[in-house]
Design a protein around this nucleic acid. Structure first.
Length: 283
DNA sequence: TATATCTCCTGCGGGC
DNA sequence: TGCCCGCAGGAGATAT
């Protein structure tokens, strides 16, 4: 399940293996994977083919490939199960291959996505707060690994909201890059239950939660990301190992690594939340 | 306007 | 063995 560290691993792979190549042709094999490009497959292909990829950038869970001359980009979201793979052009097609772009170096850039929550779309680059981003990403907040991430500004935003802290952490317009896994890990590290209200938490505690989010994602990035079921892989198809370091997510019934109490699982926002009933008291 | 809930999708695994 | 159902969850759409 790709969150910020996993997307960053993919971005680094694209930067290494794809930047500098020109797209010679592209095939869209599933309409859902380009549903966000409202002008359709023909328009999307027309904007991509013949253009050189000049950079691979990211904000939160969005990544994009800037095409020459630097005014537009292919915006990619991996969704739940998306993979960006660089493969030899003659490699067999993956079962869930959705988009195949042939590159000038002889390789394919392939978008493989089992659950089709992800996809590609073109967007124009705009400048927001001093940084060039695709217009479709302009509403996404800076992520904790962004050098210009402003902790105090996010703390102020959180204090001004009246909602549960986990819900706020998952709101990409408040802070981006955090998904269900790293939200649970950050809250476990900060000893806060996800249903605590943002306007009732102190500024130091909110800072602690955001610092925890950054540190847990830093650690995950250093191990190549988290992998549970081979749905997340880097551009070479390799999985990360951070799942061996998780303290909360997926550990229902196992002893808390801090106090030994059995970890609990609760339903939250149509998904599972994991926490320690002793270290993380509900409101 | 802010917040909460629903919906999309596919494959796996458990229960019968 | 095969069928059914719950589950996984990011983000935009819709409801409150």
């Amino acid at each position: 399940m790709p969150e910020l560290p996993e997307v960053e691993v993919v971005r680094r792979g694209l930067e290494k293996f794809v930047v500098g190549s020109t797209v010679e042709s592209v095939d869209f094999l599933h309409p859902r994977s380009i549903r966000r490009h409202v002008l359709g497959a023909g328009d999307l292909a027309g904007q991509i083919v013949g253009h050189r990829i000049v950079s691979a950038d990211r904000r939160g869970k969005y990544l994009w490939l800037v095409l020459d001359p630097g005014t537009v980009a292919i915006v990619v979201h991996l969704g739940m199960s998306g993979q960006m793979l660089v493969q030899p052009a003659d490699a067999p097609a993956e079962k869930h291959l959705r988009i195949r772009a042939r590159l000038s170096d002889g390789n394919d850039l392939r978008f493989v996505d089992q659950r089709t929550f992800g996809g590609w779309a073109m967007a124009e680059l705009v400048t927001v707060d001093g940084t060039a981003v695709p217009d479709s990403v302009a509403h996404i907040a800076r992520d904790p690994m962004d050098p210009r991430f402003d902790v105090e500004s996010v703390v102020k935003t959180l204090r001004g909201k009246h909602t549960e802290i986990k819900r706020a952490l998952l709101d990409q317009t408040v802070v981006s890059g955090v998904g269900n896994i790293y939200a649970d890990e950050a809250l476990w590290r900060a000893k806060i239950h996800g249903n605590r209200l943002t306007d009732k938490l102190t500024r130091p505690k909110l800072r602690e939660i955001l610092d925890a989010a950054r540190s847990v994602m830093d650690a995950a990035l250093s191990e190549g990301g988290t992998s549970f079921d081979a749905l997340y892989v880097n551009v070479n198809g390799e999985s990360g190992y951070f799942d061996r370091s998780l303290h909360a997510y997926g550990r229902e019934g196992e002893p808390c690594d801090r106090c030994g109490a059995p970890m609990r699982r609760e339903k939250f926002m149509n998904r599972s939340s994991y926490s320690c009933p002793v270290c993380q008291r509900k409101r």
